[in-house]
Design a protein around this nucleic acid. Structure first.
Lengths: 200, 200
DNA sequence: AATAACTCGAACAATGGTGTTCGATTTGAC
DNA sequence: GTCAAATCGAACACCATTGTTCGAGTTATT
């Protein structure tokens, strides 16, 4: 497993500072514009473009590092969610936390998909995805979620509805405060086993 | 309303033939690669790049014309669908037809979103969207679909689930023959009013 | 205070696309 | 058969971006 990140170990203090500044600036810039250039990012970091390339061999690898960072941040938040209770309640909680992350890192994801080698994004999503999968599997065994569709499909539906919500907000058709409720209501209904009553 | 298309009226026969060939080739190329270049398209059309620019002032306007074409083709197909019966049955039919179109024109849509001015894609989707909206509204009045979420949200969910399905196919996690059924099942459940039983 | 690490801007090459201009040639229309 | 319309490839200017090289200057570390 290659260490893609610019490892800060052994680097001088100012170098470490700059690497952090570049990562922060990149997160910010790419969060605004998925096509942000290295010049733009370097400027936002208060650093010369040469310095940026001194720490990250290419734009793609910088983006990879930023993405890894974002995933780690996300994992931290998601790890807080208690998934042990009623599957529907747990899913509600998980959606609420996930939604915040999707909303924050949406543009970054687009950048990653446009730049990183195919499969890399999914590879980095493995952990959060496994979390969702596990919950869905448990919900199915307990009869809370439907079993007539593949788990992977249900995971995908949740993913797509959340990202779709982000689009709706961008287009101004949904206000951010209502989004989470819409998503939850929609997903809970979609996951309900055939023959059961739709909740709420 | 500006006539964006290269109007064929008054043009010579060979010019009309070439315009058609360019549109066809563009549909094909952009359907394979949303970033297809004008050189690529011209070559595929069996035409010089200069000729292409002779008929379409810019890549963007060519793309617009192609997109308009695709929408017209889609409208033709969707107009065949009988939407008068039971709303759930009608929605199932509508999804099946829409899905075929989404599957066919997916890559083209991406190209359009990357190139056309913001809002233009939605503008061109107005007609097919109105069709879906109208059906949903009727379904709500008859108690077949839920009323606790905005119609525009439900339209968006349908849209996102279909495009998500296309991604799943691209990723090889879903086979094309099963996609329509998955989508229908998911959407019908998501649209079911709270308290009602999920169908099938 | 010595040294190696780091940073800087400016300049460069390479790439890959868009859109235009040229003059010569072919082809359709009437 | 005439003439305008349409075509062709080659060449051009243009622009933005990536990634590199240079040499001179600055800064952390010891």
């Amino acid at each position: 497993m290659p260490a893609k990140q610019a490892s800060t170990t052994g680097k001088r203090a100012d170098a470490q500072r700059n690497i952090a500044a570049i990562l922060d600036a990149a997160t910010e810039c790419l969060g605004r514009d998925p096509a942000a250039s290295t010049s733009e990012i370097a400027k936002a970091a208060g650093v010369g473009r040469v310095t940026l390339y001194g720490h990250f061999p290419s734009r793609a690898e910088l983006l990879d590092a930023v993405f890894v960072h974002a995933i780690e941040d996300g994992e931290e938040a998601l790890a807080q969610v208690d998934l042990t209770g009623d599957p529907r309640d747990a899913l509600t909680q998980l959606i609420e936390s996930s939604w915040r992350l999707v909303d924050r890192y949406r543009s970054l994801l687009i950048a990653a998909q446009n730049t990183l080698p195919p499969g890399r994004v999914r590879e980095l999503h493995a952990d959060p995805m496994a979390r969702v999968e596990k919950l869905i599997e448990r919900g199915r065994k307990q009869g809370a979620f439907r079993k007539d569709l593949p788990t992977s499909w249900l995971v995908g539906v949740m993913h797509n509805v959340m990202h779709g919500a982000a689009d709706e907000i961008t287009a101004g058709r949904v206000t951010p405060d209502k989004a989470a409720a819409y998503i939850t209501t929609t997903i809970l209904a979609a996951f309900t086993p055939p023959g059961d009553r739709v909740p709420d």
